[in-house]
């Protein structure tokens, strides 16, 4: 911030809001009075206004209208019921369901046959097995390291047949280590491994989704003799499982973040 006579009520944020037209008429007048007496700030604000004008000119509104008019926006995509993950999970956990056989979202129009749980159950099992094998690995936890993320992502997307990204879990304390390709029956699966500051690892296991699948969630408590829990869900792009030796709430925080990023 440049120096100038500081009116304690006028902050830099207000100057930005002035430039972006986000002030009330009253505050706008106050900022104008302030700028009239602070030429250095006025120069700054004038520069910001020019920046805004140039940006506006670079991306013309008229062209945007023309381009979107030519897009083919579908009129009638199926309105697929898919409750937000945190809500559905909270419901499942509160009801004490999940650990036994999974909890399945209801869709009143779909035939019950479409809710067959097998794909997600087997995904969940494979994800846990893969976690138990690779997460304790010291020398070769991943096949391709996060330092080569672009390659990792391109490779796994290619093998899974759907564009995949490695979610950024730093907001929940986990950093990407890398990933590997694994079998899931006769199909390809991707395992992404993350580690927190204490060395705790979680893995995300993905296989290609099936078009038209319904919302499905399950939480699986640690199996006998292991400390590894998992949460799995699916949509029409992927089936997802997140696995880790974490308390339910912590694992759910990770799952929620993953879900948000895969939106």
């Amino acid at each position: 911030m440049t120096s100038g006579q500081i009116d304690p009520d006028i902050t830099e944020d207000m100057l930005h809001a002035y430039v972006d037209g986000q002030l009330s008429a009253e505050d706008e007048a106050r900022v104008e009075d302030y700028l009239a007496e602070n030429p250095e700030e006025a120069d700054l604000v004038a520069n910001w206004q020019i920046q805004n004008q140039r940006l506006d000119a670079l991306f013309p509104r008229s062209e945007a209208a023309d381009r979107v008019a030519r897009l083919d926006i579908p009129q009638d995509l199926p309105n697929r019921y898919r409750p937000a993950l945190p809500l559905a999970l909270t419901a499942a956990l509160c009801l004490g369901l999940g650990s036994a056989g999974g909890w399945f979202a209801h869709d009143s129009v779909a035939p019950p046959a479409a809710m067959a749980p097998t794909a997600l159950q087997s995904l969940d099992l494979r994800a846990r097995q893969a976690h138990l094998v690779y997460a304790p690995e010291v020398l070769h936890p991943v096949e391709v390291a996060a330092t080569d993320e672009a390659h990792l992502v391109a490779w796994l997307s290619n093998r899974l047949g759907a564009p995949l990204s490695a979610p950024d879990l730093s907001a929940v304390g986990f950093v990407l280590m890398g990933g590997r390709l694994l079998p899931a029956g006769e199909d390809a699966a991707a395992q992404l491994m993350y580690q927190d500051a204490s060395g705790e690892r979680v893995t995300v296991f993905l296989t290609a989704g099936a078009p038209g699948v319904l919302a499905n969630f399950r939480f699986s408590d640690p199996a006998e003799g292991t400390s590894v829990a998992s949460i799995s869900w699916e949509d029409d792009r992927f089936r997802y499982a997140v696995v880790g030796a974490l308390p339910r709430d912590d694992l759910m925080t990770v799952a929620t973040e993953l879900y948000r990023q895969f939106l």
Binding site: R67, L71, D72, I73, P74, N79, R80, R82, P83, L263
Partner: peptide, 22 residues
Amino acid sequence: DKAQADDLVQDCAERALRKRQL
């Protein structure tokens, strides 16, 4: 990139329509 912008918006609109319940 205009073509990329078209694709981004198209993809975004389709996802939004599919997931409008969210």
